[in-house]
Design a binder for these strands. Structure first.
Lengths: 418, 418
DNA sequence: GCGGATTATTTCAGTACTAAAGTAAGTCAT
DNA sequence: ATGACTTACTTTAGTACTGAAATAATCCGC
């Protein structure tokens, strides 16, 4: 009714948005595009005409009509372009390449020692190997890191968990790889993926809660990931939940992550006698493996199931309810390695969640997505395709580069310059 | 760099924004206006010219220059227009009229029985009395209610605390008063006031935490109050803080409000022996009075000071720290009746807040504004002036009406039609 | 009292959008 | 078949913005 827009925009956002959406979601009618991009149908007619004349999109045949003029969906022409995503963890690096619609075409995992001085060189080498193995132009590389990132464009990361302080990831990788690079917090990247490929199709304001080594939260408001003043929003894991409690490496105590992050779960298992103290894993990666073994035992041990996973589910449900009471989202998505054991968490979660919700929100739906190992890296890759419809310029110049390359790829050129 | 805007906008937002800003903040230079409204200086030149030709604004003399062309501030001409705000509570109604810059010109408090079937008639009568007593055109009326409101325009309120379910406040008052009416949650209204008159001048992303009968929170992101999917965001009071704990009228237990809302404080005082059980106040309003008396005694009773107010401060600090960790704001503002006893809360708050913050945010500043009884109603009044620069149309048609009246008032007309 | 630096404002030409009204192409009930 | 209705898209004319370059008015050092 009262939309705003106007004036000059050198970077041709709307055409790129159309190309990006068609790439990510497949053929769409003009009306659907207009609604998804929140512009008038008239605008779609215009850019559609332009893109067709440039051979970048084409009309598919008609759709069946349910009483009314039948729609003629637009479809991307050419563009075998792909996107690349990287998940950075303390001990390894996961890299995926995917088509624009999120179909994974290639995955690679490398051991990674973040403490080495040449860590970024090694990372760049692993990424370059993937770039070269992909038989298609690559629009850009998304990088997901645990910790806060100042902006996707500049890509300066702070991460106590992997020991980065003011690490200039973005600039370094850009220089070494010669492709657009977008850096973001790993959970926020997952939220972006959810917006492009997941619940974003139905909801625009929701929370993405992750359980695994840490406990994280992505906050999506009206289709945009909320990053906070310094890119550090979403630290659900560090909400104080109990008085006293375990100290946390982030400098406080009694937070949710210290309770039910992987270390917290192991600690609880030891304290409750479910796990021998001398078997306590020493490397973080082993914690997840240990939890898988506990879960296997829990299948036949109801005391363990309830005393560990049920307990964790209740805490998670309590925190999630607090979030919902506070932020009033439309839904909650639960992701992360921990969801592999979700059937063990579920009852506890349901109880904690529903009993702590305000009455008016007691029936709020939540979704647990199936999880696999590529998801973190695929989330990072989604940063690239999402930058083609980055309305408020969060991706800056790197986003512009991606949009340029998208046009090139859609135009059928096999290779675009850096 | 990459702003967007364009096309037609029937409702002339920018001129109204300029008028509103000049009214609220006093004379400003074109450059300042451009920065505050996030438009180009060129646009301000144009609307400034237009508004001057219509006699609505005028140039003041030059400002002293510090090396450069001196600025010539624009100032509102005419417009003795005023704004009216109402705070609805279960037992009373506070109404204020104020100038556009927030200076209160008239206040009135009426006893109010929300349970009576003709409650809205009585409310409308009290408001009409103020409207008639104000010797100036009134741009509109803002109404702050405890509870969630679907939208400022339609004004349908849900408030368990005062027993409203689906109450059509907006429509009813509009029809009875014949002026634009904007309804909003009381804490969100306070956050809007903070944006217009308070910390909004220096920060754009911050939290407004209120302590009093309840515990509330307004979330301001990039200059906009975040309302949540159903207008129900900000319920900090219902974040679960302790296992078990007191049941809450909102249908759960152990939440922050049940701990340190006024009822919780009194309960704690009784349990700790600071207050005789048979003196427990029965009416909600008496709770705040009882707390004032406890505070007076605490001035000379360190055990009471620490055991009650220090304890409450620690809980508040803990919750605020959780919020800051989660939402990464630039600052936190603390408001509400409870701040009258802030010197008693402060030490506990400092301790709880700092010790639960993530290390990277440990030095986050917070502000405790001086409080007086008019603040709730003045916050509601701020809804009216804020609607003159309502970029994303949250105030709908009522906002358009306000902008029309503002133009009329600035044009020097004494009275505008409904 | 003159050039240079600095800041504020204006001019100008261009553009990406919009609303409103028109056109196209089907379904469905009679 | 006809016309009523529905939905999808297009045409048209207009506009509220923008960036870039030009202009204006001051201070400062010498």
């Amino acid at each position: 009714m009262n939309k705003t827009a106007s004036g000059s925009r050198p970077s041709d956002l709307l055409p790129a948005s159309v190309l990006g959406l068609l790439g990510a979601r497949g053929p769409m009618t003009r009306t659907e595009l207009a609604a998804a991009l929140r512009v008038s149908p008239a605008s779609i007619t215009q850019v559609g005409k332009d893109l067709m004349s440039r051979g970048m999109v084409a009309e598919l045949g008609q759709l069946a009509s349910g009483g009314g003029r039948p729609a003629r969906p637009l479809s991307l022409v050419g563009s075998a372009a792909q996107i690349v995503g990287v998940k950075v963890a303390a001990s390894h690096l996961a890299v995926v390449a995917a088509k624009l619609d999120g179909t994974v075409t290639l995955t690679r995992t490398e051991p990674f020692d973040v403490t080495r001085p040449d860590a970024l060189d090694l990372a760049a080498r692993a990424m370059r190997a993937v770039l070269e193995a992909v038989d298609a132009p690559v629009l850009g590389v998304g990088v997901g890191v645990p910790g806060s990132v100042d902006s996707l464009e500049s890509g300066v990361a702070d991460s106590p968990t992997i020991g980065w302080h003011n690490a200039q990831i973005g600039a370094a990788l850009r220089q070494k790889l010669g492709v657009p690079v977008l850096v973001e917090n790993d959970v926020n990247a997952l939220a972006v993926a959810e917006q492009v490929y997941g619940v974003g199709r139905r909801y625009s304001t929701y929370l993405v809660v992750t359980i695994g080594r840490g406990i994280g939260c992505g906050i999506v408001i009206d289709g945009q990931v909320y990053r906070g003043a310094d890119g550090g929003a979403g630290e659900l894991g560090h909400f104080p939940m109990v008085e006293g409690g375990q100290p946390c490496p982030y400098g406080h105590s009694g937070c949710l992550e210290s309770l039910i992050g992987s270390s917290g779960l192991i600690r609880r298992a030891v304290e409750a006698g479910f796990w021998a103290a001398d078997e306590t894993p020493t490397r973080p990666d082993d914690e997840l493996a240990a939890i898988r073994r506990l879960a296997a035992r829990a299948a036949t041990d109801p005391v363990l199931a309830e005393g560990l996973f049920g307990w964790a589910g209740r805490w998670l449900g309590t925190a999630a309810a607090g979030l919902v009471n506070l932020l009033n989202p439309e839904t909650v998505v639960i992701l992360g390695e921990g969801t592999a054991q979700w059937e063990l968490w579920e009852a506890g979660f349901e109880h904690g969640f529903r009993s702590k919700l305000m009455a008016a929100r007691r029936s709020l739906p939540y979704v647990v997505d199936p999880w696999d190992e590529d998801k973190w890296a695929l989330g990072a890759a989604a940063l690239v395709i999402a930058s083609s419809f980055d309305k408020d310029g969060a991706t800056g110049y790197q986003g512009e580069l991606v949009r340029e390359r998208l046009s090139g790829a859609a135009a059928g050129r096999t290779r675009t310059e850096v």
